[in-house]
Amino acid sequence: HSIEQTEISDLPAQDSLNPGSLQLVSKFKNPSSSCSVDVSAMWWERAAAKEPCIITACEDVVSLWKPLDTLQWKKVHTWHFTEVPVLQIVPVPDVYNLICVALGNLEIREIRALLCSSGDESEKQVLLKSGNIKAVLGLTKRRLVSSIGTFCNQQVQIMTFTEDGGSKDEQLLMPPDETILAFAEVQGMQDALLGTTTVNNIVIWNLKTGQLLKKVHIDSYQASVCHRAYSEMGLLFVVLSHPCAKESQAFGSPVFQLLVINPKTAQSVGILLCCLPPGQAGRFLEGDVTGHVAAAVLTSGTVAVWDLLLGHCTALLPPASGQRWSLVKWSGTDSHLLAGQKDGSVFIYRY
């Protein structure tokens, strides 16, 4: 702990580390007595107009913030949770009036949909799933995938929402006989889904048929987590994060890795290791990938951004106002980066 703090204080001023690639656009603070756990951006429809809104989640409250003309944010809805704390926001693309959240203590026990009734705009919540939920992800075409249970007793389900946020139908995917850690969508192939498992396999599903198409073993760091994949020229390019990777003298501290997989032969090769620039230390704490950019909060409290096409770190954001970063998300609605701190502060940067 003390070593990490020393490294933060030794960092040069923000401007010299971050030459213009991240510009602060606006910031606000969510006044809450509980710890801030997640932040996200989404489109919310009010009076037939869609607005880019921000969602903040504390352990006991989820809030929706709408933009005002003056680059300020106004809280318009709050949902309260008194029994089970909120763990994360689960954005579902293409749904405009609904937020999904995962609740639990250490592990996810419930997934709930948060919405407003059309008549009086009052906040409502609906229980979607409950049980020993291991992984959940919102997918394009208004779908939500979740895995419940472990090993052989695992159920992988896809739920599809209607445009106004109602749930339409459910479909099962063939479960692998190993516990799923995370799901990742495949850009350029809407009917494919990837999952990483606890024994470092990547599994590939056909979302239309529910078939388990392939299991690919990846020779990488333990407990690697897939964030996103791209389908190009018969190959899958997969972005993994490495929360458990140890720093090595040869590479430094590896945070993300770009891996190429031939799904036909189940062979894979690492093609890019995203390591921290010299002088930086810390491991991956949490992160987000969109398009060809990957952002991570490090255990040092710094946010780092990599351009996966350029192959190097393009921005570093040291702790602001004396506080470490704890959350980082791409807005999804545009090229903005949301960075959050435990006390409820949210900073919005243009990348």
Partner: peptide
């Protein structure tokens, strides 16, 4: 390692694996 280690590549891998995998 190099991409040569990946073996023969098929542009239609998704359809081919879907026809081979159990329903």
């Amino acid at each position: 390692c190099s991409t040569a280690d990946l073996g023969p590549i098929s542009l239609n891998w998704f359809e081919e694996l879907s026809s081979e995998a159990p329903p």
